[in-house]
Nucleic acid binder design. Structure first.
Lengths: 195, 195
DNA sequence: ACAACTATAGAACGCTTGTTCTATATTGCG
DNA sequence: CGCAATATAGAACAAGCGTTCTATAGTTGT
């Protein structure tokens, strides 16, 4: 039994190359990558990859990867049970960058200190994605300056004034009398274990 | 005052192109991108970008982006105050994919249902990154099959047996008598607002 | 067994790429 | 002003690219 080249194997090799080198390999490089001695063989396989919806070629004939480089398969609900490897292949692969960040140019990451939003499930040490410039709506979590210190709070408009409330009974709500500095709206929370 | 081309502006345009087209632009395409009529002008600016550490060229002369495409600046602690735009430029730009996912091939995303880990700050509707195959340590959060249903639990070894505990007093701890199916270890939690 | 298909090799080719050279406006500075 | 530095244009060029063609083993199906 001779070992055969498979589409999946080739896809993985190309993906690895892309990850390592920051660009797609040329046909010549793919000759080494696949262990063949002719560019026409590479073309043969590339056409298969294109037909299989794994790669595409743009107007210039350049190879473009169709899936994000380091995405994760999204496998639905926990209760639906543990995904079988076969199922997993069919799921959408999602890049966390694209999924979480709407406006990359006006967003940034901030590490949370304090427990003012503990009942919202935002703990000390968590990271939040802050989006600048967005108009906060009622119930949004914002980063705001309170008593000269920046903290996270729920945002609520009450008539003409603004109320900032913590998700923690230990912190009293704050009614803005003078001006109020809102740094941005929280668009996502991230907690990483295994730091 | 005539508007001038700046490195930062060019970098942004190239970045946009890369995001949209999945590859770096050719010199000819950059002529349009920059609004110039000669490839030598493009070369002129590309050399500046390379000198400025924004791009690099590999052995084949191909342009490689040095920063991740859609990363976010990490700007430290909330209490340190709100970052000034000037500061922000200097921070590390982090790709969430690279930051959160250690082993892309053996990880996947799962949507949480139920409130068994509510005191750990994991709420219904959150997404967790599950890493298969990793050996769980005491205190790790794992996805496990309990009474034919998959849920999140703390993992703890107690002598020879294993105890699964919820982060919610409503759920009693479970001592594994027979076999125990652990689907994987939770390596990160993600909550997205503005769905 | 023989045809049909799959997989590989090698060579030839046109075309676009990135590079380099010369020439010329435009801007900055003392 | 006048000189140097900066920024743009256009043309020429070799190299490498992806493509295509022909030929030939190896594998599969009936």
């Amino acid at each position: 039994m001779k070992e055969r080249r498979t589409l999946k194997d080739i896809e993985r090799r190309i993906s690895d190359y892309l990850r390592k080198n920051g660009r797609m390999p040329t046909y010549s490089e793919m000759m080494e990558l696949l262990g063949v001695r002719s560019k026409s063989v590479v073309d043969f396989w590339v056409k298969k990859l294109v037909a299989g919806g794994i790669l595409r070629k743009d107007a210039h004939g350049f190879l473009i990867p169709l899936r994000p480089l380091s995405g994760l398969p999204m496998v639905g609900d926990i209760r639906a049970g543990f995904p079988s490897p076969a199922e997993e292949e069919l799921r959408d692969i999602i890049s966390l960058d694209e999924f979480l960040v709407g406006r990359p140019d006006s967003s940034f990451l901030l590490k949370v200190s304090g427990d003012s939003m503990i009942n919202e499930g935002i703990k000390q040490g968590d990271l939040v994605i802050v989006e600048k410039g967005r108009e906060p709506k009622n119930g949004d979590i914002v980063i705001a300056e309170v008593d000269g210190e920046w903290t996270l709070k729920y945002f609520r408009r009450e008539g003409k004034s603004v109320v900032l409330e913590a998700a923690n009974p230990d912190y009293p709500p704050i009614r803005a009398k003078t001006e109020l500095r809102i740094g941005g709206v929280i668009s996502a929370v991230i907690r990483k274990y295994y730091l």
